[in-house]
Computed example of a mutant assay.
Amino acid sequence: MNGILSSIIKLENKVPEWNNESQTYILNFNGRVTQASVKNFQLIDEDGVIVLQFGKVGRDRFTLDYRSPLCPLQAFGIALSSFERKFGCE
């Protein structure tokens, strides 16, 4: 059992910082995200390293960046889970 549990990786939402100038909470996407959205988020590991970031870049366009230990399928599944409506049901 310990072998299985040792392979579990804990990821958390990065907490946004308050910006006095804009009077909003912000995350630094280093230019990869260009529009504000409630769907924008970053996941960090226990060391504070950004493992996944997802954000809006156009009316119906989003960007997804990820790194190890996530695979493309995991990253895509996490990103899809941020949408409140199901595609094809509109």
Rank of each mutant, 00 (worst) to 15 (best):
N13T: 07
N13H: 11
N13V: 02
N13G: 00
N13C: 02
K14R: 12
P16E: 09
P16Q: 12
P16M: 10
P16K: 09
E17F: 06
E17V: 13
E17T: 06
W18K: 01
W18A: 02
W18D: 03
N19T: 00
N19F: 00
N20V: 04
S22H: 09
Q23D: 11
Q23Y: 03
Q23R: 06
Q23F: 02
T24C: 07
T24L: 10
T24W: 01
T24R: 12
Y25L: 01
Y25P: 00
I26W: 04
I26A: 10
I26F: 04
L27S: 04
L27Q: 07
L27F: 02
N28F: 05
N28M: 03
F29Q: 07
F29E: 06
G31A: 10
R32M: 09
R32T: 15
V33P: 06
V33S: 04
V33A: 10
T34P: 02
Q35L: 15
Q35K: 15
Q35G: 06
A36Q: 08
A36N: 15
S37I: 08
S37A: 15
S37H: 11
V38P: 08
V38R: 13
K39T: 06
K39P: 01
K39I: 09
K39V: 08
K39Y: 05
F41D: 13
F41W: 11
F41Q: 14
F41R: 13
Q42T: 05
Q42C: 03
Q42H: 07
L43T: 09
L43P: 14
L43K: 13
